[in-house]
Amino acid sequence: MLAYHRQWCEGPASGRLVLPQSMKLLPLYINCILKNDAVSGSDMTVDDRSFLMQVVTVMDIPSSAGFFYPRLIPLQDINVDSDELPSFICCTSDNIRDDGVYLLEIWCSSP
């Protein structure tokens, strides 16, 4: 990261870390991976954890992003006259209202 800052950022260093747009969510995804059952599932059987590890290694990028950080869709903001879905929100307590209705996209290993 520091090498990126020295090479590509212009002007004096202001003491803050400047990241490329593609790496801004990297800490979030790393935290999601570390908390996932495939890596740290202590209450799982060895078979279940090895199955999850095998499934994760063969996932494509969109599937793995949905597996590690599921998307949340606010259903109370749907416009019934439009064909478009509302935009996804981050799964944080700051974005969830008590009177809201949400759809959580989850990954399922088998039908």
Rank of each mutant, 00 (worst) to 15 (best):
I73E: 03
D48T: 10
I106V: 13
Q76H: 09
Q76I: 11
S93W: 07
R16C: 05
R49Q: 14
H5M: 13
D60A: 03
I73M: 09
L103F: 04
D81V: 11
D77H: 08
V18H: 09
V101R: 10
P20Q: 04
C108M: 11
R16I: 03
S87I: 05
P12T: 11
L85N: 03
P12N: 13
L103Y: 04
K35I: 02
E10N: 09
I89H: 03
P74N: 05
T92G: 04
S82Q: 01
Y102M: 01
C91F: 07
G11R: 00
V101F: 06
S109M: 05
G66E: 01
S14Q: 13
G11H: 00
D94S: 10
A3Y: 08
Q7R: 10
V55G: 04
I96S: 00
D83F: 14
D47R: 08
K35H: 09
D48A: 09
I106D: 02
V46A: 10
L26Y: 13
S14D: 15
Q7W: 05
R71Y: 05
H5F: 06
F67H: 01
L2E: 15
V80E: 12
W8Y: 13
F51K: 12
S82W: 01
L2M: 05
G15D: 02
P70D: 03
D47G: 09
S109L: 07
V80D: 11
I96C: 00
T57H: 12
Q21S: 10
L52F: 12
P12L: 11
E84A: 06
I30G: 02
F88D: 06
Q54T: 10
Y4P: 03
V46S: 11
E84G: 11
V101Y: 07
L34I: 08
T92D: 04
F68H: 03
N36E: 06
S42R: 13
D81W: 07
M44F: 03
D99T: 13
V39E: 02
D94P: 04
L25N: 14
I73K: 08
D47W: 06
N79M: 02
P74T: 00
L28R: 13
D99F: 07
I78W: 00
M1W: 12
L52G: 04
D94T: 09
V46N: 10
W107L: 13
A3H: 04
D37G: 05
L104I: 07
D48Q: 15
I106E: 11
L75A: 00
S87G: 15
F67D: 03
D99V: 06
D47P: 01
C32G: 01
T92H: 02
V58D: 11
Y102H: 00
G66D: 11
C91K: 02
D94A: 07
D43Q: 13
M44V: 05
T57S: 14
R6V: 10
N95K: 06
P86D: 00
D43V: 09
P62L: 00
G100Q: 01
V18G: 04
M23Y: 08
R97W: 01
M44E: 09
P62A: 03
S50N: 15
Q7A: 10
D43W: 05
C91T: 11
M53D: 07
S109I: 10
S42Q: 15
G11K: 03
P74V: 00
I89P: 00
L25S: 12
F67G: 01
S82N: 11
G41F: 00
R16V: 07
R16F: 09
N31M: 12
Y102V: 04
M59V: 02
R97C: 04
I30N: 08
V55T: 14
L2R: 14
